[in-house]
Write a protein that binds this DNA or RNA. Structure first.
Length: 591
RNA sequence: CGGGGUGUAGCGCAGCUUGGUAGCGCGCCACGUUCGGGACGUGGAGGCCGGGAGUUCAAAUCUCCCCACCCCGACCA
């Protein structure tokens, strides 16, 4: 039994000034956590209780799925991470440090290397596979900007699992097993979630999905359909191509003088205001224009390749989508010097006429999927101050291919059902990933196959942010007045409130009730504080968020004494006869 | 890393423009009253005003430089 008279707890009446999001604000106010470092939190008794409940739930689901728990140090030597290249590749987000002898160490941001080495150490034969291991461990990432309380910290607890299979079919099974156990886990947490594809296009093959808890304060943007259940990461969504248009009878392309129109907006205004350029039936819009821009692709081997991208003028290039498509290359903006090297490119007036491997610049030219044969565009005429109207794809120009780099806008077409998508935000609570053989190969993990020859296992990795899930649950379940935990996560089943005069019958009833409930196996938080007014007790009970509140108050004085039982979430109250209340509460709490 | 904001008692804030012995609310301690929705009275304790340097007879207040935190963006297996 947790007695509030003894509990190391202080609730705050006012919101802490540095907390913006509800989960952060309430967890601090309710005395669950305190900020201790940039991106680091200390846990107070109630918070730690809740944390362990979440952790227990994660562990339980992992064990149920047949995965085995192991544990690694968080403080690791450099060497294995050097072998896989991640000592450097991980970049600024890796906490690096040295021991007294000057040897390099790191605080692990994730443990692929260690799991791989452990399997290498133990498993020797294909008969030892598949292997499914997990750990629950504190992870360290030197985040540029920790934010939103427990949502994004530099030290956090993560459950990470790894699967080792002999072949792709096995990996698929392992992946599916983890996916299924995550669905059970997040359902059990009472957390609404969507699974979005996070497949990175150009890398090919490696399958990846994110579990997102949809909420406005989330930092991951994803796309969801307004009518079907399609959901995808912005990087993974594909743009449906419209039908091609027959070229017969389309108006010819005409070059016009369009002085002083370096931007899409000035261009549209200009052509609409000019009689000779007006659209016969309507105003031109920015969606009628074809915007061409050039970037430099920096390939991992150091080579630089210019790439031209054509997209409808009503949208911008989404750098995240572009990077995902060109990965592992990186995209950088075209500089003034780059333009100087390509005199055929008229900055602000770049058109398909100069682009593509067959034209003046020789620059590879990829266009948005909407730009299909027969679509006509207003676009640059490759000399300063000139644009061309009705330049038609498939007739006047032929791009080298298509590229998914345009930003996704609300109202875009759903690739699954054809209705409209919307843009939503979510918290990434889980991520499952088919790694393949990258780590096994780098660390020389192999087992003897059935045929006696060495075989390299293929791996999957699967993560759940434990501390982040706690915050997500708090965020999803709380209301204006406080936290509101699902029973399994809550620090107690029943919050017993003594609401009468100290030394009166309420005291006696509350003490007895708390003891009886505990004897029946319920977890009890008992507000037995003296010299605390009833108002404070009620407010604190609501703030702390235990799902069921039992008040020994006025009802105790009645001819047939009663206890008020209140459901924290719904706010419903009922008076239950003192004689029946223990049974009643046991059934409520074990339902 | 760019833009914006904030640092004054445990928490939330005022004071700064116009320099002159540091204030309010909550919380805390003592006593009394009260006891079903963050009660009341009386009396207390508690602060190197983020740090450093400067200007001045005098700096929370003016100047310069740091640092920390929050928000937006960039970044983020």
């Amino acid at each position: 039994m947790l007695r509030m008279s003894k509990l190391f707890l202080k609730t705050l009446r006012d919101d802490p000034a540095d907390a913006e999001v509800a989960s952060h604000r309430l967890l601090v106010r309710a005395g669950y956590i305190r900020r201790a470092a940039p991106g680091g939190f200390s846990w107070l008794p109630l918070g730690w209780e809740v944390f362990r409940n979440v952790e227990k739930m994660v562990r339980d689901e992992m064990n149920k799925a047949g995965f085995q728990e192991v544990h690694f140090p968080a403080l690791l030597p450099r060497e294995p991470y050097d072998t896989t290249g991640r000592w450097t590749e991980y970049g600024d987000n890796l906490f690096r440090l040295q021991d007294r002898k000057g040897a390099d160490f790191l605080l692990a941001p994730t443990h692929e290397e260690m799991f791989t080495l452990m399997v290498k150490d133990i498993a020797g034969s294909y008969r030892d596979l598949p292997v499914h291991l997990y750990q629950i461990q504190t992870k360290y990432r030197d985040e540029a900007r920790p934010r939103a309380g427990l949502i994004r910290t530099r030290e956090f607890v993560m459950k990470d699992s790894y699967s080792f299979d002999l072949n792709d079919a096995g990996l698929d099974e392992s992946y599916a097993a983890h996916r299924a156990s995550y669905i059970k886990l997040f359902d059990r947490m009472g957390l609404p979630f969507v699974i979005v594809s996070a497949m990175s296009g150009a890398m090919g093959g490696s399958k990846s999905e994110e579990f997102l808890a949809p909420m406005d304060i989330g930092e991951d943007t994803y796309i969801r359909c307004t009518s079907c259940d399609y959901a995808a990461n912005v990087e993974a969504i594909t743009t449906p191509a419209p039908d091609e248009i027959t070229l017969d009878g389309l108006p010819a392309a005409v070059v016009h003088d369009t002085p002083g129109t370096p931007t899409i907006e000035t261009l549209v205004d200009f052509v609409n205001a000019n009689e000779s350029m007006r659209h016969p039936d309507r105003d031109w819009t920015t969606a009628d224009t074809l915007k061409n821009l050039v970037v430099n692709l920096k390939h991992p081997d150091g080579t630089i390749e210019p790439l031209a991208i054509g997209i409808p003028g009503d949208r911008d290039v989404d750098m995240k989508r572009l990077e995902a498509v060109v990965s592992p290359a990186e995209a950088e903006p075209f500089s003034a010097e780059d333009f100087a090297k390509h005199p055929s490119l008229a900055k602000g007036y770049i058109g398909p006429g100069a682009l593509g491997s067959d034209n003046a610049s020789g620059i590879r030219y990829l266009v948005d999927p909407r730009i299909v044969s027969g679509t006509s565009w207003i676009t640059g005429a490759d000399s300063s101050g000139n644009h061309v109207i009705n330049l038609t794809a498939g007739r006047d120009f032929t791009p080298d291919g298509v590229i998914e780099a345009a930003e996704i806008l609300k109202g875009d077409t759903c690739p699954a059902c054809g209705s409209e998508v919307e843009i939503a935000r979510g918290i990434e609570i889980g991520h499952i990933f088919q790694l393949g053989r990258k780590y096994a190969e780098a660390l020389d993990l192999w087992v003897q196959g059935e045929d006696g020859k060495p075989a390299t296992p293929t791996m999957g990795s699967y993560g759940v942010g434990v501390s982040r899930c706690l915050a997500a649950v708090a965020e999803a379940t709380c209301d204006e007045i406080g936290l509101c935990w699902p029973r399994e996560i809550a620090p107690a089943d029943v919050h017993v409130v003594m609401a009468g005069k100290e030394g009166g019958p309420q005291r006696v009833a509350a003490e007895q009730l708390a003891a009886d409930l505990e004897a029946r196996g319920l977890r009890v938080l008992f507000d037995d504080r003296v010299k605390v007014s009833p108002g404070v007790r009620f407010k604190d009970a609501e703030l702390l968020g235990v799902p069921t509140i039992a008040v020994a108050g006025r009802g105790v004085d009645a001819d047939v004494p009663t206890i008020e039982v209140k459901d924290r979430q719904s706010g419903e109250r009922s008076d239950v006869a003192l004689a029946d209340v223990v049974d009643h509460l046991v059934s409520v709490c074990t339902a």
